[in-house]
Amino acid sequence: PLFKAGETVGAGMPVLVIIGAGTPEVEINIPASEYLEREHFGSFTCTVNVFPDRVFPLELISIDPMANLNQLYRMRLRFKRDSNGELPTVGMSAMVNIGYCHEDNRGEIIPATALWEKDGKTYVWIVEGKDNCSVHAQEVIVVEMLREGHSVCHGIGRDKQIVVAGVHALKEGDKVRLLEEKTATNVGGLL
């Protein structure tokens, strides 16, 4: 019981907690950006401070389809039966890790600003060379437009450098200069 006999309890207040003897569950709240990616959730694990050297596999029970007042979606997970040894108990804090399924055929995720069109086809500028960089047009197929200004495209290939700004001012063979990488001391990339 959470209250003593004779105490006044407000409407909607829990008065009793029942703890089951079955497999413990983990409850987390995820933001809308993660909720929109729920189809790509692949695996779930958690770590608990009390068991610093163990990673516990979890399985998804449910995700509430409606956000709470904080614009978070409640997600319930349970410990897998094949977890060896002692499991965490009710009330212990856990850090949950969500693994995403990245299908090889899904494509590359790039900023939408890198895309440009000509004659009804979509292209990106691929940067070739390291010192004397030039660009050439590469046709791509846009598979999906994502939120936050990104696109999923086929046809670029991994480890290729592309132009992401000023794409409409370039033409085939133009020379470009690569921006220097941010240093560890340039926090926020302001310098």
Rank of each mutant, 00 (worst) to 15 (best):
V55I: 09
Y35C: 12
F51E: 04
A5V: 12
P57A: 02
K4P: 05
P57Q: 04
V96I: 03
L87C: 01
R38Q: 14
A21H: 14
V90S: 13
L72G: 12
P24K: 06
Y35P: 13
E86T: 13
P24N: 07
R54L: 02
G12P: 00
I28G: 05
P65I: 03
V48D: 06
V15I: 14
V96L: 08
V50N: 15
R54T: 10
F41Q: 01
V26L: 08
I30A: 10
R81S: 15
L77H: 03
A11D: 01
L2E: 04
V96W: 03
E59A: 11
F79E: 10
F44P: 09
A11N: 04
L58I: 03
L16C: 08
G10N: 09
V48W: 06
L72Q: 12
I28M: 09
P31Q: 07
E39S: 13
N97A: 15
L36H: 14
G12N: 04
V26K: 07
M66F: 08
L69R: 01
T47N: 10
V48S: 06
S43I: 00
T8N: 13
D82R: 01
T89C: 04
S33E: 15
K80R: 14
N97S: 15
K80W: 06
L2Q: 03
E86F: 00
F51K: 05
S43N: 10
N84M: 00
L72K: 14
F56A: 06
I63G: 02
Y73I: 11
T8R: 09
G20E: 11
F41Y: 11
V17E: 15
P65L: 05
T47V: 14
I61M: 09
I18G: 09
N97I: 13
M13A: 08
L16N: 13
K80N: 11
P31S: 10
M66G: 08
P31F: 08
V48A: 10
L2I: 04
V90N: 11
V96R: 08
I18C: 09
G85M: 02
V50I: 12
G20F: 06
A94E: 04
N97E: 15
L87V: 00
V9T: 02
G42N: 12
